[in-house]
Amino acid sequence: MSDALSDDGSHEDSQEDVMTPAELIVKLEEAWLNEKFSPELMENRSEVVECVMEQLTHMEANLQRVKKGDAKASIHRMEIDRIRFVLSSYLRSRLQKIEKFFPHVLEREKSRGEGEPSLLSPEEFAFAKEYLANTETYLKAVALKRMPPNLQTVDMIKAVPQPYLDSFVFLRVKERQENILVEPETDDQREFVWSCAVDLNVEVCVLVWMAPGDHEPAEITRP
């Protein structure tokens, strides 16, 4: 799912240094919307976040030097406020997901292979670990220590719901792709793969995760 939603993730990293501030803001907004609509936590975009923060601090430092009542300064401030809103909303929605799925997020972080990009930024990782520790301490303090000894542990992985990855989603197609098929829904639900409809003329699709198999895929008809 994350791949389908954030295909901007990896292959554009190399061009990061030539990105204009305007493009950076577009990237941030994209990350914000993807994070908002995806059922699971997406890969962290801390490079974007850091660049945006840098831009904001830089601009705010400049504004400090401007005298009061300058017409331009108020416009700059408004822009800063707008960007700051997107940035905090983005970070907040990530934190909410971390709070919601913390054992699974940490589990994924643990099983992450060498060289694979981390799901969490270092700050988010610290937050998730602390959240886990605090939750455990809390559960212990209010209930567990009064339980019989054999019932004093809680497996967080089992106790906390995991993200619902078979969720239907709306998705917008950004560019025309060939050879992508949407398979019809089937009853075989053991192993799911992500298939998606990608066509320039398809603006939005409702999708479901579908099972692979030997059934005929339904091709998207192109107008």
């Binding site: 709306f170 409809a197 699709c205 999708l207």
Partner: peptide, 20 residues
């Protein structure tokens, strides 16, 4: 009709964000 026909996907050209 999407629900009645138990469809798995639908193409919704020209639908705006607010409408979705």
């Amino acid at each position: 009709s999407f629900i009645n026909q138990q469809e798995a996907h639908a193409k919704l050209d020209n639908l705006t964000l607010m409408e979705i």
